[in-house]
């Protein structure tokens, strides 16, 4: 649409080219601003300790090193001064594995339950008009307020430091997001389309899976990515409800602190590694995301 407008506006090819360059440049500028932190993270992850906080900062490491990455995986065989001072004894593989189990499972539960609940609420008014708000109350307290009572239950249920325990907490606390986001998408589907399917003879489940779900799959993908990121970066509950066996990546990240200060290098390296699953996921569902975010623009 926009490109067409520009094309119409530009009568002469010179203006057309100029506009296109301007367009590209603006896009580049915006992308550049947003990508700076990521580039900085990447840069630090390859720097030796001496370069972590130098002023003026240098973007390209003067003496690039892989130490920061190596120390993540082999903490007991430290190389160089930085790693020697680390308290971390666990390699990052374990926390990474935990995160890889806990987060997708919690996300899947949250989005599935949230979507079905949203459908029930949006189409059948199950639970009454107040139900969605009731679910939202789980986000109306500071998370720490729930921590202590939950800790008591979890001790009794022996769920502390177990993947199941963390999965349940994550699924529960992101349910409100899943429900509200998918509810918006479902309500965007014209009711008549579903009614047409019903009159063609489709059962409610059939309508849900063959009509509504394919139409909102973009929105569902967006919701999934959003919830995944929330869970992937969650720190508080992971810290409180795990001790040794089930620590996740964000908790592991906080361990790279020595007696003399923070170890920016290994932290940056872990940050880079931790971003990879999110990037992969985002890339995988990219084509659905576009329809998800532009959902409102699709005609009825």
């Amino acid at each position: 649409m926009k490109r067409k407008d520009i094309a119409v506006m530009a009568r002469s090819p010179v203006i057309s080219v100029a506009l296109r360059i301007l367009h590209r440049f603006t896009v580049l500028l915006v992308v550049g601003i947003f990508i700076i932190p990521a580039v900085w993270l990447l840069s630090i992850s390859f720097k030796p300790p001496t370069e972590w906080q130098v002023f003026p900062p240098n973007l390209i490491p003067r003496s690039p090193t892989l130490d920061n990455y190596i120390v993540l995986f082999k903490p007991e065989a430290p190389k160089g001064t930085a790693a020697a001072m680390l308290r971390v004894t666990e390699p990052v593989t374990k926390s990474f594995l935990n995160s890889i189990i806990v987060v997708p499972a919690a996300t899947a539960i949250s989005v599935t339950v949230g979507f079905l609940a949203a459908y029930a609420v949006a189409r059948f008014r199950i639970g009454g008009a107040f139900m969605p708000f009731f679910v939202l109350t789980t986000r109306m307290f500071p998370p720490v307020a729930f921590a202590v009572p939950l800790l008591v239950y979890y001790r009794w249920l022996r769920l502390i430091d177990t993947p199941i325990g963390l999965i349940l907490i994550y699924a529960g606390f992101t349910l409100a997001f899943s429900l509200w986001m998918t509810k918006g998408f479902i309500e965007g589907v014209p009711r008549h389309i579903e009614e047409a399917a019903i009159l063609d003879g489709a059962s409610p489940w059939r309508v849900l899976f063959t009509i509504t779900l394919p139409i909102v799959k973009g929105g569902l993908a967006a919701t999934m990515l959003f919830v995944f990121i929330l869970n992937w970066t969650e720190f508080l509950y992971a810290l409180i409800f795990t001790s040794t066996k089930t620590i996740t990546v964000p908790v592991q990240l906080s361990h790279y602190v020595g007696a003399v200060g923070r170890f920016y290098g290994p932290q940056a390296a872990l940050g880079v590694i931790a971003s990879i699953p999110v990037v992969i996921l985002g890339y995988m569902i990219q084509r659905y995301l576009v329809t998800g975010f532009t959902f409102g623009l699709i005609r009825r």
Binding site: H192, I193, A196, I198, L199, G201, A202, P214, I215
Partner: peptide, 20 residues
């Protein structure tokens, strides 16, 4: 239930399954 009536309905906006 509407499924069992054998009645066809053409909606104002046609309500086509536009993903199909």
């Amino acid at each position: 239930p509407p499924q069992q009536r054998g009645i066809g309905f053409v909606f104002q906006n046609y309500a086509l399954f536009w993903h199909m």
